[in-house]
Every structure is written in C-alpha cells, then in structure tokens.
Amino acid sequence: MAGSFFRRFNRNKVLLLMVLPGALWFLFFSYLPLFGTIAAFKEYRFRGGFWNSLINSKFVGWDNFKFLFNTDAAFTITRNTLLYNIAFIFLGLVFSVGLAILLSELVNKRLAKLYQTSMFLPYFLSWVIVGYFAFSFLSMDRGLLNHILGYFGVDSMQWYSDPTYWPYILIFVYLWKSIGYSSVVYLASILGIDRSLYEAAMIDGASKLQQVRNITLPLLKPIIIIMTLLAVGKIFYADFGLFYNVPRDSGTLYSVTNVIDTYVYRGFKVTGEIGMSTAAGLYQSVVGFVLVMVSNFAVRKLDKDSALF
C-alpha cells in the first residue's frame, strides 16, 4: 500500500507541485483559521498571544450572535443581502451567458477581442474608484446625470438622499463591473464546443437561434450549474465595497443599501468586539454551507451528472 502511494506520488509529482501553492493557501487562510471560530462564543480579551487570549476569554455561549437578530435592522439587512444576491446571480447569469454567446458568434475575431477586453476592464477597478465614477454621474450639483436631466427640463435629483432608484443603480453598477469577467468563463467553454456539431446543424438548416438553444445552452449547462452553486454558497456575503463605497455611505439610503457586511462593519467601529464579528462571519458561512448542500442535493435529484459532488 505504502509503495503504491509513493509510486503514484512520484508519477504525479509535477501536478502535485502545481497544486501546492493553492493547497497551502487554503491550509493557511481557510483551514487553520477555523480554530479561531471559537472566538464567536467568547468575550475576547487580550492576554498574551492570540491562543492564550482565546483560551482565557470568558465563554458566553450564543450571546455574540444576538446582535444579528435582535433588532428591526436584522430583517432589513437579511432581506437586502438575499434579494440583491439573488438578483446578482440571476441577472449576472443571463447577461454573462448572453454576452458570451454574442461574442462567440462575432465573425470579426479582432473586434470580439476588443469588446471582450473593454468589458473585462471594470473588473480590475477597486470599488472605491467605481464609487467615484458613480459620483461623477450622480453628484447633485456637478453630476453628469443631473446636467442631462436639466437639459430636458427636469429638476435636479438628490441622488444620494433618495433611496427609490438605488436598487437599480446598485444592480447596474454590479453588472457593469462583473459580467465581463464571468462571461470569460462561459466564452471559454463555448469555444471548447466541437464545431462539427454546429456544422451538422447548419447542414440540417438550423437557424442561429436554434443552434444556440439546442447546442450551446445544453452543453453550457454543467458549467452554469457549477458557477451558480458556487454563487449560492456566497449568498449571505454581500460585496462590502459595492454597498459601502458606491452609495458613499449615505445614511438616508440605508433602507436599501444596508447589508449584513456593512451592518457588522458599522456596528463594530464603536465596540470593536472580535467575538461578535467572528459570530457574524460564522453565521454567514454556516448559512452559505447549508444552502450549497441543499441546492446541490436538488440538482442531484434533477440531473445526477451535473451536481458538484
């Protein structure tokens, strides 16, 4: 047994070496910190190093979790986090798959590369910068949008104090920033589809639309399911940068911009309780884990081959 292990190890050592950085990363940043989860049940106080402090801090049971559920805000932030993420997952999927299909059908490949690159670029911008981009459009006195509205004789809007339009603005900004990146994944798998399938379909007289519906989409299904399952696992994590920087932390917009992550951040600016922020993180992970298991289970019931595990 041992011999066979080493033989296999030897045979795959190059591949294993390639896995090593990623494996180490997960070990250090995902598995080792798991022990720190204990902090969620402690009133963390400093005493020597981290482990010492952790062990010596008072055990408080579920007290650290109370702040997430005790107030009216709990409903708002859970609702906002869930609804935005559902919108992001759904619209993100539709737009990035659509975009990938359009790009793959472009005859001029150089132009396709140009489009792809320019849509990919916003992904690399930090949310702080995106926040200022949005501000240059939405500023009350100097914003582009109010100038355009003024041109049509519409009064200037106080964008940063009126929550009405923010769900749309946030979703738009999110899609603008992210679909370029996610469409690359789909584009790559579309390009991997055997061209002879399309040729056969064309000989049979299938239109472009029929080709997409009967060849591209069915073959994309596994990757769509995987990407969606992964996104579902993060459904309780909101993109902090988006919800904090783009609305410029404007208080009057909180009813539609406050999500779990921003709520936790704002709350701990004052109390700085490590235990309570760990509790919030643990809660998000556990719910995410449960959701992934449930949706994977559902997928397996429907189509065994497409499930993640």
Binding site: K66, G251, Y254, R266, G267, T271, M276
Partner: peptide
Amino acid sequence: DSTKVATEMTAVQNVKEQFWASLMTGTV
C-alpha cells in the same frame, strides 16, 4: 463601559450612521 449593552450599541451605532450626517449637515 458598554460591554453589558454591546448588542444594543451595535444597533444604535447603525441607526446613528443612518440619520446622523444628513441631520447634522441640515440636508434633511
């Protein structure tokens, strides 16, 4: 010492951030 009311302080802090700046600067 806010230890005993840490849960409430977190909520109060969030409400404060929601209303504070717009009230104090006269925006609303």
